[in-house]
Amino acid sequence: MSDRSRAGARRRPQRHLPLQVLLGFLVVYFLVPFWWVIVNSSKDAPGLFGGGNTLWFADQIDYLGNLSQLFTYDGGIYGRWILNSTLYALAGGIGATILSVMAGYGFAKYRFAARRFSFALVLGALMVPATALVIPTFIMFAELGLTNTIWAVILPSLLNPFGVYLMHVYARDAVPDEILDAARADGAGEIRTFLRIAFPLMRPAVVTVLLLSAVASWNNYFLPLAMLSDNRLFPVTVGLGLWQGIASANNAGSTSLWSLIIMGALVSVIPLVIAFFTLQRHWRGGLSLGGLR
């Protein structure tokens, strides 16, 4: 990074106006859906369907009214969905990260029987479509009585082969064998060496894997859609999908549901957008880690 900026400083300052204008159009394209949702979540049903400008505010701006409707509709089910999503993202994300960090470190720093074969299996697993696993996992869970419980969503999210791969790459390069050997020579056990010496060195990649796994759980749709039938256990993705299906099925009778869905879409993206802006350094770090190797 610093090399690049120095090289940039040496060059003549260049404006590249046409490129910046092109970029401006692209930014508008990427922001239009957000803008639409921000504007239209301020409208009530007449404002929404009244044929006014769809990309600008109506006369009535009623964010608070829509918000309170959103969180009180059907006994406050939407609030539950957000909490469920949070629970699934945290439990799945933290669990998957712990397993990935340990496994990545193990693969990078130990020599053991079947290591190469096991690691090849993990890499092969990157190519297995996650959705191919959902149907058999559902039947296995049904036999164990686990379907329609939170475990049906959390347990499968613990599997993150990509996290293992990232941690393997990072541990291999960022944790020198000499330091580990020195710690062992000082009498530290393997677990203590891992926790006290290796883990702090791996921390930047740990944060990245945590973010990627938590976001993957938060975004998950197919798995909870298949596993859950009780709508009080739904994450917000499945919940909004359900509302959208209901609202489209009887278009005339459910105009008020549409304003809830729009407000619901806005509220559901806020936590991730905040996480995204505050933690962008970690996102980019991990993505380049995956891309460069």
């Binding site: 990427f30 859906p33 957000f34 976001v215 975004n219 909004l240 879409a265 559901s268 993206v269 995204f276």
Partner: peptide, 15 residues
């Protein structure tokens, strides 16, 4: 431009 990545695909499709 990176922002849509933070949006669940389901919510993106809804939008």
């Amino acid at each position: 431009i990176f922002l849509p990545y933070a949006i669940p695909t389901v919510i993106g499709a809804v939008m």
